[in-house]
Amino acid sequence: MTPIEPLHVQLLAALIFSIGLAVVLTRRNIFFVLMGIELMLNAVNLSFVGFSRTFSGEMSLTGQITPLFTIAIAAAEACVGLAMVICITRVKDTVDSDAFSGMRE
């Protein structure tokens, strides 16, 4: 039914995951770190859907249901993460992630 090679989907997912990891590791703005995490979550979802095409019957649906839960978890993560960014930015007055290193204050 789908003529797209699952290998190509996996390669694309690996590329997006690597770019997301690069964003998380190199950028200092805290918003970029959050967006890098979203990129990595998207890459894993894409990988799930790509692998679900290699199974038949009910197993192929399982690979498409798991990303639904991952998307809900990502929504909760973005919600709490952005609230923490607002909270810390009020105290520190910057969005530089190096300033967010202290656990006290």
Binding site: P3, S52, S56, G57, E58
Partner: peptide
């Protein structure tokens, strides 16, 4: 990733015609 994926046997990453449409 690329090395691992390309080293997989071909039947592991074969599109199954019996997979359901979501």
């Amino acid at each position: 990733f690329v090395h691992t994926l390309t080293a997989l046997p071909a039947e592991t990453l074969k599109s199954d015609p019996g997979s359901l449409r979501g």
